[in-house]
Amino acid sequence: MSASEGAGEGGFIPRDRRWQPDALTPAYKTSVLRSPKAPLLSFPTSISEETSPVFGHDMLGPLDDDLTLNFAQDGQSAIGPRIVVQGRVQDEYGRGIAGALLEIWQANAGGRYRHVKEGYIAPLDPNFGGCGRVITDDDGRYTFRTIQPGPYPWPNGPNDWRPAHIHFSIFGHAFAQRLITQMYFEGDPHIPLCPIVGSLNSPAAVDALTARLDMAQTIPMDARAYRFDIVLRGRRQSIFENRPEGM
């Protein structure tokens, strides 16, 4: 690494707080008591935020990126519509982020989570755990295999249902980029009704979290494909397309 690419060179571009959801979104009732009231304190990033732990491909097991199999008995697999989710993790300049760690979790095809606090009457699938992880390749691309999760009811208003979704936790190259979000499925009629989706400030932000069916990547007679690209914050410096981010 040359000195010009080292930490401290060019801080991260501040988050656009009008684009990102507000802390307080009263229709999502839990936010009322969990939202800070004082303005956030702004300061430029330093090496403390411009660095991040490194995750290597060697930490992954062979089934970590296959939720249809990673909790299943030998010879069995999870119940539900089989899908692959694919996309690219990139920064705000469109540069692929290699080595990003994606951790994913979701309900089963009936909309039920495997969790001690879960109370929905839909049954557990004995062959489905609901978590997986994957690390992006040199161009920032990732793919994992799972089943399409079901929508589920939740205690908020008298009759609120979550659209089908997959939760994503994303580690880029800097703690300033740390992000947790949810991926929705194109065409789900619950999307415009959901108070958590409603925490987003614009239709464009909802669109950014909506995965598209990608027939070209569909695996015939096996699994449909959905595409979900992810953008993490970029560093304020002169950017050249052929310089890999953070290398």
Binding site: D91, Y93, E118, I180, Q182, V231
Partner: peptide
């Protein structure tokens, strides 16, 4: 490009 929007981590 706009940063991917955040959503709550939820209860699980």
């Amino acid at each position: 490009l706009p940063e991917t929007p955040s959503q709550t981590a939820g209860p699980y």
